[in-house]
């Protein structure tokens, strides 16, 4: 032990000073309550009085659900939403998957720019897209038609499908495709026999959430649907102010349950993939 130690002159340098701070958990749980309670509170109300909102509910009725299922306009709107959601999900899934694969596996120079353009509807305000589609369909004479709704929703869903499927493609081992091509498989064969089966979990999750997004979509539908093609959210939106009966509580409950089912379904698909990966290794 020579000079530097002495030069440093390091003695004991006191005790660390600090406090405890256990608040994070409390704050996080308050936030969870704030996030979840509004939708949960609607559930008991949906089984309550059918003329006005009473909380806590004094009785248990299925009246509001009965009312919903016996009112032809509500049923028509629900059917319309399901139809639009199914069709636009199918189209967006097809187009989006092809686009995602094309982008991920190409070495195009404009790849980045193309991606920005393709994904921008995900973030720019829905009302801008809605107004654009509205003026466009007005010009080509499709306003108010189911075709217009399906096209509009497809535009709205595609970026989401691309993002989800691209993430799935990024996880794939590209050398498997190279191997297939070395073995003589053509591009189409590789895509259908090698890529798509591996992408199944991403496709399931993209499809489920696309359906939900379309089924719940309000702004675009509000602008481009007509009296005969009203979707469920549009009917809900226009009836919030006018409807005296809390029938919306029943509809909201069912929509929330749909969200839960779809989330759980997607979670299940994700776990299946995890298990498949675990079984492989």
């Amino acid at each position: 032990m020579n000079s530097p130690a002495r030069k440093l002159n390091l003695g004991a340098i006191g005790k660390p000073v600090h406090w405890r701070f256990p608040l994070t958990g409390i704050m996080a749980w308050s936030a969870f309550a704030f996030l979840l309670l509004p939708s949960l509170i609607i559930i008991p109300i949906s089984f309550g009085n059918k003329n006005q909102i009473v909380f806590p509910p004094t009785a248990f009725h299925w009246d509001l659900y009965y009312l919903f299922f016996t009112t032809s306009t509500w049923i028509a709107a629900t059917t319309q939403s399901a139809k639009v959601a199914l069709l636009s999900t199918a189209i967006a899934l097809t187009l989006g998957t092809l686009a995602a694969y094309g982008i991920e596996r190409s070495r195009l120079r404009g790849k980045q720019l193309l991606l920005v353009v393709l994904l921008s509807p995900l973030l720019i305000p829905g009302v801008v897209t809605a107004l654009g589609l509205y003026s466009y369909f007005a010009v080509i004479g499709l306003s108010g038609s189911t075709t217009a709704l399906v096209m509009g929703h497809t535009v709205f869903l595609c970026p989401f499908v691309i993002v989800t499927v691209s993430a799935g493609i990024k996880e794939l081992d590209g050398s498997i495709e190279t191997a297939a091509s070395v073995m003589g498989a053509g591009r189409f064969k590789i895509f259908t026999a090698v890529v798509l089966p591996q992408l199944r979990p991403s496709l399931v999750s993209a499809g489920l959430f696309s359906f939900l997004m379309s089924f719940d979509e309000l702004v675009i539908s509000w602008f481009i649907s007509g009296a005969q093609t009203t979707t469920l959210p549009v009917k809900m939106y226009s009836s919030v102010q006018t409807e005296t009966s809390p029938i919306l509580a029943a509809i909201s409950t069912m929509l929330t349950i749909l969200s839960v089912i779809i989330c759980l379904g997607a979670e299940g698909a994700r776990n299946l993939r995890k298990k498949a990966v675990a079984a492989d290794s």
């Binding site: 440093l8 340098i13 006191g14 005790k15 660390p16 000073v17 600090h18």
Partner: peptide, 13 residues
């Protein structure tokens, strides 16, 4: 700093 050493001393050390 955790140990609340004066800034002047910190600079030297």
């Amino acid at each position: 700093r955790v140990r609340r050493v004066r800034e002047q001393e910190i600079r030297i050390r």
